[in-house]
């Protein structure tokens, strides 16, 4: 059978979601952000809620998330996305309001905003990209950087006496009465991508149903920051990150 007989509209089983626009993404080759962006766009499209969705973008590599997903966006100051999402969600209670934040944004400079929004049980979804490094500023230590892991500001590896311990913020958020769903996912294999998609979809539905705060932590790679190829990064993540940040639901009410 000729390829051209297969490549026909009626045979299409997978396509780029329309909400993910044609803007060329600034992310490095193999970056997990792209996959998660694609999932967010797919889910909003499938749920048919594009008209009532407001995303809040962070500071970090995904600062430009608003360039790629065709919904309304507010670009937050570093760490402040949950405060912004709080206001929008309270003022538009029928809207789907989500933040998209990295580990530095969510678990360092924005810890207070994140914990208090979650503790108030704001009806928002927090998508948390944990790649254990600051990507945008050039690969410095993040609160989630593993012990021994080399970054631009831990050039000899993260040391407890110098830098303290990696912060398992997902576990902390799961302890709060305001969260209804806290899950840890990844997007390094087709199966993982499918699971992550189901998790984000569930989180979005929780927000629409006003069940409290949902947190989807995506343990991710930063191959540029980690100084590995995308393929090696995935392997390294499975071997090292998953031990500290195990996959699965931390809370599911």
């Amino acid at each position: 059978m000729d390829i051209n007989d297969i490549i026909k509209p009626e045979n299409q089983v997978y396509k780029k979601p329309a909400l993910l626009n044609d803007n060329y993404m600034h992310y490095c080759p193999g970056c997990s952000h792209g996959v998660v962006h694609k999932l967010v766009a797919e889910i909003i499209e499938e749920m048919g809620v594009g008209e009532k969705t407001v995303g809040v973008a962070p500071v970090g590599c995904s600062v430009f998330a608003y360039n790629y997903i065709d919904v309304d966006w507010i670009e937050a100051a570093h760490g402040r996305a949950p405060a912004i999402a709080t206001a929008v969600s309270r003022l538009y209670p029928k809207n789907l309001v989500f933040t998209y934040q990295g580990d530095g944004d969510l678990a360092a400079i924005g810890t207070a905003e994140t914990i208090h929004a979650a503790n108030r049980g704001e009806n928002i979804t927090i998508i948390f990209i944990n790649n254990a490094i600051y990507g945008m500023t050039g690969g410095q230590m993040a609160p989630t950087t593993l012990l021994g892991m080399k970054t631009a500001t831990t050039p000899y590896g993260r040391r407890v006496d110098l830098n303290g311990y990696p912060l398992k913020i997902g576990d902390i958020l799961a302890q709060l009465d305001g969260t209804c769903y806290v899950t840890r996912q990844s997007v390094h294999t087709p199966a993982a991508v499918r699971k992550a998609k189901a998790a984000i979809k569930k989180a979005f539905q929780n927000s629409l149903d006003r069940k409290g705060t949902s947190v989807v932590e995506i343990v991710s790679t930063c191959n540029s920051g980690w100084k590995l190829t995308p393929e090696q990064s995935n392997k390294w993540m499975v071997e090292h990150m998953f031990e500290k940040y195990p996959m699965g639901d931390l809370k599911n009410l």
Partner: peptide
């Protein structure tokens, strides 16, 4: 009207930013 006691002034002003960005009188 929504009235909310935030966890800090940093958060308050960013809630204001969010509300204002959404066209509200805040």
């Amino acid at each position: 009207m929504v009235v909310l006691q935030a966890e800090s002034e940093v958060s308050s002003i960013n809630m204001v930013y969010g509300a204002a960005a959404a066209g509200k009188v805040v």
